[in-house]
Simulated scan of single mutants.
Amino acid sequence: MRVELSEGEPERDTRLPFRGCPARNVFTIGLPLEKTSCEKAASCTRKKSVLVWPETLRDLHYYHTPLSYLLVCISTGYFVQDTAEIILMGHARAAWEFLIHHALVICCFLYTLYTHLYVAGAVVTLFVELNSVTLHLRLLLKLAGATSSTAYRVNKMLNIWTFVAIRLAAQFYLTWYVIKNYSELHNAAFFMCALMTTNIMMLMYLCRLIRSDFLRHVGGKEYAVRNGTHNSKKFLSD
Rank of each mutant, 00 (worst) to 15 (best):
S237A: 12
L158G: 11
L113M: 10
R58E: 15
Y173T: 09
V105A: 12
L5Y: 07
R167I: 01
L60R: 00
L141A: 08
A42N: 04
V218I: 15
L71N: 09
K233G: 07
E7F: 12
V124F: 07
S132V: 06
F172S: 14
F27M: 08
F109K: 00
Y78G: 02
T134I: 03
R153Q: 15
T65C: 07
N159S: 08
K234F: 00
N159E: 14
H230V: 02
R93E: 04
G20P: 00
P17W: 09
T125A: 12
Y118W: 12
V128Q: 01
K142T: 11
L126N: 03
C108P: 03
L140H: 04
L117Q: 10
L139W: 01
V50C: 15
F98A: 06
H91D: 00
C107Y: 09
C193V: 13
V154Q: 09
A151C: 13
R58F: 11
E85L: 12
E9F: 08
R167Q: 05
K234H: 05
P54D: 15
T175W: 02
A84M: 13
K142G: 11
E184T: 08
L5T: 14
H186P: 05
T134A: 09
E34R: 05
E85I: 07
W161L: 14
A224M: 15
A103N: 10
A120D: 02
A169F: 04
L174G: 14
Y173V: 01
H64D: 03
H116E: 07
S68W: 03
F235L: 03
